[in-house]
């Protein structure tokens, strides 16, 4: 079949598309059909099966904050996934408690997805509730005031714009909170 493709353009086109579409369909259309967890929001009431909790949809202000996170390209430097690597669960943890690994059912309301590819700054998949509003305000104004050595850019136009700042912080506080994994619930404030 392939022997004739270099003299017949139509035959070539068919062969090239068939080769491509086999893998293309197998890796894009089939997986979500096989794995229901990709589209079922997280919900667990049974502590013996791991952390309990429920994934709720974003509120209006959280979605607004999420749009700011996208607009400013935060996702170029911060991933949102605690991988199946021990060090990831420790680094995403809090006060000696390791974070649970990220699972597909925690992200079904995310569009665009913000898993990220590069960690110039720390992973944010479980950052929700760790730092209060005042910390974030100072940090966005100039990250180096709180974290000497940081290379994060300053974001004064967000820190000084109260509605945008409140929205962005509201979004950040949601991260990783579908699963109730922390010992003291200080993130409520």
């Amino acid at each position: 079949m392939f022997g004739k493709t270099d003299v017949s353009a139509p035959l070539f086109v068919v062969a090239a598309l068939v080769c491509f579409l086999i893998g293309g369909l197998m890796t894009t259309v089939v997986p979500p059909l096989v794995d229901a967890s990709w589209s079922r929001p997280f919900k667990n009431d049974d502590p013996s099966k791991g952390p309990t909790g429920v994934l709720r949809p974003y509120t209006e202000i959280e979605l607004k904050g999420r749009a700011i996170y996208v607009r400013e390209g935060c996702w170029y430097c911060h991933t949102q996934q605690t991988r199946t690597i021990l060090a990831d669960t420790v680094r995403s943890g809090w006060r000696g408690v390791n974070a649970p690994i990220s699972t597909p059912d925690e992200f079904v309301y995310d569009s665009p997805h913000l898993f990220g590819t590069k960690r110039t700054g720390p992973d944010l998949s479980h950052v929700g509730g760790k730092y209060d509003v005042q910390w974030h305000r100072t940090h966005f104004r100039n990250p180096r005031d709180l974290v000497p050595g940081s290379v994060m850019p300053p974001f004064p136009w967000i820190a000084n714009n109260e509605p945008e700042f409140q929205a962005l912080v509201a979004y950040i506080q949601t991260l990783g909170r579908a699963k109730d994994w922390r010992p003291d619930h200080d993130y409520e404030q």
């Binding site: 893998g23 197998m26 890796t27 894009t28 690994i101 990220s102 925690e106």
Partner: peptide
């Protein structure tokens, strides 16, 4: 190349929250 390349996208999520 035509057959193999398209299958590899998920290697961007190794250890990540994907099957």
């Amino acid at each position: 190349l035509a057959f193999v390349y398209v299958w590899t996208g998920a290697h961007h999520m190794i250890h990540g929250p994907i099957s």
